[in-house]
Design a protein around this nucleic acid. Sequence first.
DNA 1: CTTGCCGGGCA
DNA 2: TGCCCGGCAAG
Length: 486
Amino acid sequence: MDSRYIMEKSSVGTRVGGSDFNYRAGLSVLRNIRVPAVEKNSPMPAYTNGPVLYKFVMDGGSATEVKSEGISSNASGLSPGGRILHEVEKTDMGDQRDTGSTGILKRASPTHCPGTNGQLPGGYTYSDIRNPGIQAELANNFRATQGRSVSLTERQPLSSNHIPVPRNRKPSGHADKEVMAATVLTSLSTSPLVLNPSSAPTVPEPASRAWKEMLSASYSSSTSGNWSWDASDQSVPSTPSPPLTNDANKNFLLSSQCDDVSEDVTESTHFMFEDPIPRKRKNSMKVMFKCLWKNCEKVLSTSSGIQRHVRTVHLGRNSDSDYSDGEEDFYYSEIEVNMDSLTEGMSSLTPTSPTTCGPPPVFPPPLTDLPHSEHINMNGSQSHAPSLLSQSAPSTLCHIRTDHAYQGPVTHVRTVSIGEKRQPAAVTHTAVNKNHAVTTQAPKAASGTRKPRGEAKKCRKVYGMEKRDMWCTACRWKKACQRFTD
DNA sequence: CTTGCCGGGCA
DNA sequence: TGCCCGGCAAG
């Protein structure tokens, strides 16, 4: 019933609309390609400059997601443009955190809004994105209730005896969250941006606020695993060649269908959350804002500056216009200039996994998430992981392919060395190596690419055809050599 | 062309 | 699971 589980149990590679989810035990990295629309036009970019979300799955199922490309330093949660900078999802009792003190900069989504934040007991709008069904139900209930008498009091946590309780609603725990979600949804229905005013009682709020709430509601409304951005359903982006991270949001804003909205939430929600403990952003990091617009490498030190830049230069909007739908947010990303060693590009291009310490590995931008994860796993001890393309490099320590199926007597003492000048590192076939290989091989196979030819001479070459019986079994079977691995 | 080995078939 | 081989791709 709880879509959360669907989400969290999603296997690696599960895509949610324009998003890719990669889950690892205890940690899931979500690399979010923010523009489904664009995605349709091009093969799924393995990696883009899009926002990166980190999701920390806590014990008990709670999760906090952090978007790596925070944008504003405005800790108040609301940037000048009305964007929420960060938000914490509270999924369990006592799990609330004050995001205001984190110092992590999150890319703000135009759709983000503190909503009723300060007014909620929790201090922040929290979004339970996992219970679309209930939330929708609640929303309906709320509307109904609202039609009768409820007004803004919805913002207060309502006990179930004040509102119709959905039949499958949990008695407690999520209740308040659901209420909030419902509240937001209710507000959403009143938003001018929502094209479904029929059931919307008016809420005497500033449009901007309603809008924000709508957004919050959206975020909290669903975790549909399916993102389906129907091209026909969305407005044509007003911008010529927006970064991939852009359209989704735009679509989101323009979307007239709740489904779309709620689905967008799925993704959008992620960057509302942040790890209260900015683990990966500690020491001497200077935050800069880099324009993600294609071919635009502009880097500014302030979010407002970059926003202005994007708005005026790329979006063609008046620089003096206060109006901002937040679209700019998706055209720039926060980058950190690590005083130590990191380069800007790396910061923006490589979502440093919280699990990795030290400089993030350098990957070619187009790498897919999966390989990325592999590297993390495989080369945890290496300062920088080789890309898949460089696996043939002799220096690759972990490239020990062993296939037990081919290794009956593999560990037998090598007899050899007939003319072997370059002895592969794997000459010593130890069980350790095998085990290691076991752990690292599966993902490699998943990459789908043929294993690059190793540089080491194989049995065939070493022994020659005439001594085929001396080959390792793998070689005899025309499999990857087990004896002379690369 | 040679070599490595993937993918798949067969027992 | 063990064994074999067609065929692909890199060199």
